[in-house]
Simulated scan of single mutants.
Amino acid sequence: MKTLIKVVDHYLKVNEELGHLNPTVRYHSSPIRSSEIGAMQFRTVKEQDLREYCSKRLLSVSAATVDGELRLIRRALEHALGGTRARPARNPAQNVRIVADKRQPPTITRDQFECILAALAKKPAIRALVDLAVETKMRRGELLALLWEDVDLDGGKAHLRGTATFAPRTVRLSEKAVAILRGLDAPYYRVSHISIAKLRWAFEAACRSAGLEGVRFNELRYFADRVSRSDEAEKS
């Protein structure tokens, strides 16, 4: 009988073949692979096993990270267990939920953003992704999964394919975003060859140089929103 990690790997393989796999989702499989629950026969996994796994993980990583791992397990089990719409198979992960940290995450100011860019001066590929995140309001996983064939530089738009987490959508590219993309040295089918781990490490280090702790990459989307609202208010 298949173990839970084999079920997860099969789910990832199927979604990769369909072109629906976000690199962030594969990242979530690593801790499952090295855990006791990953070695369990998937049909023997109980709700309590998943709750214990989540509790242990929360001691060392954020609630958002554990929630991503749990979502992956839930979807992999749904895929493996099958069932019908009338009689769905019972999924032990269905009722397990992560209670998110209610503390407000730190926000980025304009001055701090400039400090982050300065800290990344010797890492142009990382800096370009940070600039693109602000210009396009794309998520980290969307940026890392973006393919050149889905980018229309002349038309000023990029198509983001649907993933296991996000629905497909089209993003308008500003003149600055187009310039950044044209300047990328990425002769690959993906726009960026940077791994999620390398991006996270470099961004967190740059944030620390700006006096920020606990800031996640996707905060750049909200920073971009605040800047846009502020600029519009000044114009009016």
Rank of each mutant, 00 (worst) to 15 (best):
L220Q: 01
A177R: 13
A93W: 03
E204L: 05
K198V: 12
T163A: 03
L58E: 06
A125T: 14
R110D: 12
D49T: 13
E16C: 00
Q48Y: 11
V227C: 08
N91P: 09
E149P: 01
A76S: 15
F223I: 01
K2I: 00
V66P: 08
L12Q: 03
G83S: 06
K137E: 12
V61F: 06
F42V: 10
M138D: 02
L153K: 10
S34Y: 09
V151Y: 09
W201M: 11
R190L: 13
P124A: 10
A121E: 15
A179S: 15
R75D: 11
H10W: 08
Q104R: 13
P106Y: 00
V66S: 11
L81K: 09
Y11L: 03
Y27D: 15
F166E: 15
R161P: 05
A186H: 13
Y222F: 05
R161I: 07
M138A: 01
F166C: 06
S236L: 15
T65W: 00
L146H: 04
S34E: 13
W148T: 01
F217E: 04
I196T: 07
I37M: 09
T65S: 14
S29K: 12
V61T: 14
L153D: 06
K157N: 15
N15L: 05
T107W: 11
N22F: 01
L70D: 07
P105T: 06
T24I: 01
G214V: 09
L160G: 02
R182W: 12
D131T: 14
P88F: 10
G214P: 11
C115E: 14
P88W: 10
K122L: 06
S236W: 11
M138S: 05
G183M: 09
S30Q: 15
E52K: 09
V130T: 00
R33E: 14
V7A: 04
